[in-house]
């Protein structure tokens, strides 16, 4: 056990000194050394060696399977396509919302020339349109949350691919900028669980 502990300590020290060492290279070296030792091994050691070799074959098989799945497609094609489509949705809703707002502003101008009930009705209608147009902000924030989730998946998939060496062209994963007060930036909540305005009013009143 003392030998094993010592070996583990030495391996940890080596890992600290050479953090960029490829696991595959280390495995190759260990395999080469073990193959030169096989003639001198006891029955128990031979059994352990067989286990290690089996483990190596399992890893090689897993690597081949991951390569066959073409997981690169997820990061190279599927996720960029999905995020581009979502960005296009935000752009289209912004364009449409601006067109609606322009028409609404024209109606407001017309309302200034009217008096009485007609003016009131027209302004009430434009107020409701302005309120409804806030959907663009809310849906935009929800879509931003989905894009962030997709980028997280993309980064994790790329990490798995890099670890198992299934890809020849792995670049560094682009880091995401950590927002300020991250715990407080959750965006719109699901309506069934979110506090509404009256809940917030009560909460604020409790501070008075």
């Amino acid at each position: 056990m003392a030998d094993a502990d010592q070996l583990a300590d030495r391996l940890a020290a080596i890992r600290l000194r050479y953090p960029a060492t490829e696991p595959d290279l280390v495995a190759d070296v260990v395999r080469a050394i073990l193959s030169t030792l096989s003639g001198d091994l006891s029955a128990q050691e031979t059994s352990v060696l067989a286990e290690v070799e089996a483990l190596g074959r399992t890893i090689a098989s897993a690597k081949a399977e991951i390569a066959a799945l073409r997981v690169d497609d997820i990061t190279d094609n599927h996720i960029p396509f999905a995020t581009d489509e979502l960005d296009a949705i935000v752009e289209h809703t912004a364009t449409a919302t601006n067109a609606i707002l322009s028409s609404c502003e024209t109606l407001d101008e017309v309302a200034t020339d009217l008096t009485g009930e007609a003016a009131t009705k027209l302004q009430d209608a434009t107020t409701r349109i302005y309120e409804a147009c806030s959907f663009q902000d809310i849906t935009g924030q929800r879509i931003t949350k989905v894009v962030t989730t997709l980028k997280t998946i993309e980064a994790k998939v790329a990490q798995i691919v890099a670890t198992f060496g299934a890809s020849e062209h792995q670049g560094p994963i682009a880091g995401t900028v950590e927002p300020a007060e991250p715990a407080l930036l959750n965006g719109p909540q699901h309506p069934t669980v979110a506090m509404d305005q009256s809940d917030i009013d009560k909460l604020l009143a409790s501070f008075e």
Binding site: L184, N186, I200
Partner: peptide, 21 residues
């Protein structure tokens, strides 16, 4: 759109005058 209790509390502690969701 931030409507969690901790958001309202943090805003109040920072001196917000009112809060609209």
């Amino acid at each position: 759109a931030e409507s969690k209790v901790e958001n309202v509390v943090a805003a109040k502690q920072a001196g917000v005058s009112n809060y609209i969701v």
